[in-house]
């Protein structure tokens, strides 16, 4: 049967296309993340080693104001604030600032800070050499901790930009989110 064979071939090809497109949906995830890191989309900032940062040329002619904003995600009983709210830096000069976070609850909680930089399109000119956002932080009940961030602004940053805003949001760590999310059983009868 000629039609039978060619139908089988066609259906195999089409089913393969379905699988490829299912995979493509997942492939969009790393693709999107790469695109965001390269373009700074969504304010994703990069990380630099100390050595690279030290080798960066300095530009003493420009001053860029960096502002700091902090947030705590809903349901996270932490107090979180920058110790310096704004600072003027020269591009190419590594700068350190401190943040303070306090666990106001009576339980130990693990959190993770997620950074975002505005304006988004210059996020790739802003890098951190040290940041508490790289790792999960566990705070005991009532504990207060000071957390440092070291950052550097690339001298190639476009001339029209003179203010950057770095924002941090503390979330519960993913594993705890799953545990804290109401499960099917605990949904109220409404």
């Amino acid at each position: 049967m000629d039609t039978g064979v060619s139908t089988r071939k066609l259906v195999t090809k089409l089913s393969l296309l379905v699988l490829v497109m299912f995979g493509f949906g997942y492939a969009l995830v790393p693709l999107y993340n790469t695109l965001c890191t390269v373009t700074g989309l969504n304010g994703k900032t990069g990380r630099l080693s100390e050595a690279t940062a030290a080798a960066m040329p300095k530009d003493d002619t420009r001053l860029i104001t960096v502002e700091f904003v902090t947030n705590v995600n809903s349901g996270m009983p932490w107090r979180f604030k920058p110790l310096v709210t704004r600072i003027a830096v020269h591009p190419g000069v590594e700068t350190a600032v401190d943040f303070e976070v306090m666990n106001t609850s009576s339980d130990a909680i693990t959190g993770q800070a997620v950074p975002s930089l505005a304006p988004n399109e210059v996020a790739r000119y802003f890098s951190k050499t040290e940041c508490f956002c790289f790792t999960q932080q566990t705070l005991a009940a009532g504990e207060t901790r000071r957390m440092p961030v070291r950052f550097i602004v690339n001298p190639k940053i476009p001339a029209h930009v003179d203010v950057l805003t770095l924002s941090y949001t503390f979330f519960r760590a993913a594993a705890q989110v799953t545990a804290a999310t109401p499960t099917v059983k605990s949904v109220p009868n409404s």
């Binding site: 969009l28 995830v29 999107y32 965001c36 969504n42 949001t169 979330f171 993913a174 799953t178």
Partner: peptide, 20 residues
């Protein structure tokens, strides 16, 4: 199952869902 494709807490991005 504890993945974090769209959860900012785990390094994901809710806006990515809108793109997909």
């Amino acid at each position: 199952f504890g993945t974090a494709f769209f959860s900012a807490a785990g390094g994901g991005d809710p806006v990515m869902f809108q793109h997909i």
